[in-house]
Write a protein that binds this DNA or RNA. Structure first.
Lengths: 195, 195
DNA sequence: TATTGTACCTAACAAACGTTAGGTTTGCAT
DNA sequence: ATGCAAACCTAACGTTTGTTAGGTACAATA
């Protein structure tokens, strides 16, 4: 069971970490190569340009997110159950791969126009999945919301933000954080009468 | 009533815009100078380095945020009223000065250690104000929350995120967005029985 | 053994960068 | 008019950057 991770994937992984650390323009390819265990010029055997590394990283991450969220929602019967799974997934995915998700969330401005459009299209597909849950919740369960898009954005930002401060083994588990955020989004802060 | 804005402030303003557009490492001083209406080298008459521009921008913004939030809370009687004003302020401030707030939220990693500590200290002061409101709400009004810090972070990320998509004259006013978010955080999505 | 393609190295390129030194202009106080 | 400091310009510096060309090591194939 040796290390079957290809050099290409090592580069992508290290690139995510380095881009997060310094930002895409602040990261340089010699440092990236060093971390990947090769010389500067050798990166071009695997990628055509620095830009392509960024694009592959973001495009791959967005595809993975869409696929996995879709999987998670299979078998969920009610909008409420779908919402719970979405919140849990979105937090866990961001905490598990904080480098990839951070890049994907924050480096859109550094994509060349063509790549930008592709990644934004996938991001919109992801958002639409959640928007649909919000709309269903309103239609079928009387959720209190006007603009599904507005609440979707709130959910996404709030859950993605966890990865900016979360440290493994630091008091709360991901499951606990997810439960707290599910409670907040479903019931709010103010006390409820018992039903 | 001529243009009394000093060149120094013009540079800071344009820097905020440019840094947001390209990221701190991706922005170059010749371009910044051009936008400020001077030559590249002349920036150094006003600032000692590129780093100092970033620091002044962030430090100034954090001080302003603390001061204004504190003002907004004067006269608020209950935790609920304080929460409402905080949400409204945080959204409005981010939407009004999206360049400055974006830099302050996202460019911490590019501050040199000494500057980093100063800005983080002010950011923590700002967060503590909101945390205190959460704690008070729990103690005095029975709000449903365990970790005030957790909910503070959720609030901050969620409200700050508005500035990433908000466009003036695009359907909703800031006040409407604020009301929606206040409702979400206070009552949640699920329907409530009438009290 | 000869061939071939993949993976990598070395060294260099042109461009862009933050920064600096030294000179010029401008407006104001004396 | 003179002195002077603030505000700005010009031109250059050393370094770093993304990228490329040409070569080497090596395993698989024939």
């Amino acid at each position: 069971m040796a290390d079957t991770v290809s050099r290409r994937e090592i580069i992508l992984q290290q690139a995510a970490h380095l881009f997060r650390e310094k930002g895409y323009p602040g990261a340089n390819l010699r440092e990236l190569a060093r971390r990947a265990g090769i010389q500067g010029g050798s990166i071009y055997h695997h990628f055509a340009s620095k830009q392509e590394i960024l694009f592959q990283l973001m495009d791959q991450t967005m595809s993975d997110m869409i696929e996995r969220l879709t999987q998670q929602l299979v078998g969920a019967q009610t909008p409420l159950e779908k919402l719970r799974r979405t919140i849990h997934f979105h937090i866990e995915y961001h905490v598990t791969g904080p480098d990839q998700t951070y890049i994907t969330d924050e480096e859109l401005r550094n994509l060349e126009p063509e790549n930008y459009l592709k990644v934004v299209a996938k991001r919109d597909r992801y958002q639409k999945i959640i928007e649909q849950i919000m709309s269903d919740g309103k239609a079928k369960e009387g959720w209190q919301l006007d603009e599904p898009k507005l609440y979707t954005r709130a959910l996404i930002k709030m859950c993605a933000g966890v990865s900016t401060w979360y440290k493994p083994g630091g008091g709360m588990t991901v499951a606990q954080i997810a439960e707290a955020y599910i409670g907040l989004l479903c019931n709010g802060l103010l006390p409820r009468e018992e039903l």
